[in-house]
Design a protein around this nucleic acid. Structure first.
Length: 492
RNA sequence: GGGGCCAUCGUCUAGUGGUUAGGACUCGGGAUUUUCAUUCCCGCAACAGGGGUUCGAUUCCCCUUGGCCCUACCA
């Protein structure tokens, strides 16, 4: 395969969408695997809906994720590539089609067309353009346009011809021109529409493979027709399965969170998000689930891309993300700390190394599936203890009564924690605390859960929290005793 | 309405003309953790239906059903 070149053409009509990222990722992986390049272009010919802020969001997002394109080429803002900046090129191509009579001006009004379609629908006919302006002489058309009459440009398509292409993930696909009509390719000579711009750009940019969502399958024959009319070589096509909502409709913001910003803000790691997205519609025959970017590039091929759509399952994303967090902590705590820093709120300490130590504590392993949860788990160690019900302390499951806690367990725990040497090193301190508290179980003749559970709750105020020994070590003597007193109050 | 695309556990998926149809997530149970979480083990759970082809179809073909996409002077 010679010089593979793919593209990622978002249109700035909304924030960076999960679907856009998945398509970008597959293009990126394919290009890298083949030793080719991926270029970026901003499809902003819809002046009504295109917004500068969306453009920035999309570019920033893709850069953050590391899949923005190669060599900085054609990224608007760096070297600049927007369709809105290439109007003359499209005009030139449009003029050529007009001159060669492969396209023609159409003067039909919106009302006439709406009317026509409605009648066709009523008659149970497919709504198609009736060719009203098809046979206007070029001279007359030219005169009317020059006179200022409003006219769109339509492509003249063959009457009855099969248009087929070999889709790299679906195989041979074919559609007859009878199913199409002379569609509009420009609002005016200097105001081109999607199909025309895509074709002209893909040709000018030297795109060899068009890899996009399957919602474009039915657009493909139209674009092939334009490629042919212009005398340009037709690229290869590959249509990807869609990402779906739970109800199997196309992923939409009505039913799902689709903005990449939201996921990042919630504490999903970019690599984890990409890993998860890569697996939505593609996989390796082995049982691997976690891939580095290099592994994805090495293993990615289009022939292992699925045909059926895939539902976006947030639970699986959470799991993947948790795996990445676990690894990130183990590999480089300093780097991880920088990543997690913006998520740590309400934690009034400037002692970074303390927090790093806590994060590294084996007791914390696997507690987070999102960065936003780091704060929740850390919080009990630094903030004032949250209010909690006595019933959480005296849990029915363990058959604990408030009286037991008030008379036996809590006073005993205070005794133990007051008695130990708090100046020891961390790990030995942890062991002493642990041994001391566990000993209470035997002394009082109670069950483990009847002693250890309430102590942990007393120290954290939470149903789920780090281990009691871990809590005690990081809380310190005074705070521990204070929290045990609070618990004591609750049992009165 | 027309055309196109698709169809393995709830979800992501592996897989084959003959398999106990495999893995992961979720969920349930157990073990370890002297509590929660983690970790480990076990379990629940699928080839949409009907016809062919075949000695034999989840696998190949057709039909049906279902879902989705497109059917714009959006992209």
């Amino acid at each position: 395969m010679t010089n593979v070149r793919v593209r990622i053409p978002p249109s700035p009509t909304g924030l960076l969408h999960i679907g856009t990222v998945r398509t970008a990722l597959y293009n990126f992986l394919f290009a890298k695997h083949e030793g080719g390049t991926m270029v970026f272009r901003m499809e902003d010919t819809d002046k009504e809906r295109s917004k500068k802020e969306y453009e920035e969001d999309i570019i920033n997002g893709l850069v953050k994720l590391g899949i923005a394109g190669d060599e900085g080429v054609h990224i608007p803002g760096s070297k600049g590539f927007r369709q809105s900046e290439r109007i003359e090129v499209y005009t030139k191509n449009l003029q050529k089609l007009l001159d060669e009579n492969k396209a023609y001006y159409c003067f039909c009004t919106k009302e006439r067309l709406d009317n026509m379609r409605e009648k066709q629908r009523e008659a149970k006919l497919p709504p198609r353009y009736d060719g009203c302006c098809k046979n206007l002489s070029t001279d007359e058309a030219k005169k009317r346009v020059e006179a200022g009459e409003k006219a769109v440009i339509r492509l003249r398509i063959p009457e009855n011809e099969d248009i087929s292409f070999k889709d790299l993930v679906r195989g041979e696909t074919c559609i007859n021109c009878k199913e199409l009509d002379d569609f509009v390719i420009a609002r005016a000579i200097d105001n081109p529409l999607y199909h025309l711009t895509v074709v002209v750009d893909d040709h000018d940019m030297g795109i060899t493979h068009v890899i996009r969502g399957e919602d474009h399958i039915s657009n493909t024959p139209k674009q092939i027709l334009i490629f042919r009319a212009l005398g340009y070589e037709v690229p290869h096509f590959a249509h990807l399965p869609l990402i779906l909502n739970e109800d199997k409709s196309k992923l939409s913001k009505r039913k799902n969170k689709v903005s990449v910003d939201d996921y990042l803000a919630e504490g999903y790691l970019p690599e984890a998000l990409l890993n998860f997205l890569a697996l939505l519609g593609w996989n390796t025959p082995d049982e691997q689930e976690i891939f580095s970017m290099d592994e994805l590039i090495e293993k990615f091929t289009l022939d292992r891309v699925h045909k059926g759509g895939a539902i976006f399952d947030i639970k699986k994303l959470d799991w993947v993300n948790g795996e990445y967090i676990k690894r990130a902590i183990a590999e480089n705590i300093d780097e991880f700390f920088e990543t997690v820093k913006p998520f740590i709120k309400n934690i009034p300490t400037d002692d970074e190394s303390l927090i790093k130590n806590i994060l590294k504590d084996p007791d914390f392993e696997g507690r987070f599936s999102k960065l936003s949860e780091v704060s929740e788990v850390l919080e009990p160690l630094f903030s004032p203890i949250p209010d909690y019900p006595t019933s959480l302390l005296a849990l029915d499951k363990f058959q604990i009564t408030p009286a037991m806690l008030k008379d036996k367990v809590l006073p005993k725990a205070k005794e133990v924690l007051s008695g130990i040497d708090w100046e020891r090193g961390e790990s030995s301190k942890s062991k002493v605390i642990s041994d001391g508290l566990v000993a209470i179980v035997g002394e009082l003749g109670l069950k483990n859960g009847q002693v250890l559970w309430p102590i942990r709750v007393a120290l954290s105020g939470l149903e789920k929290s780090p281990n009691f020994a871990t809590l005690a070590v990081y809380l310190g003597k005074e705070e521990c005793l204070k929290r045990l007193d609070i618990a004591l109050e609750k049992c009165k």
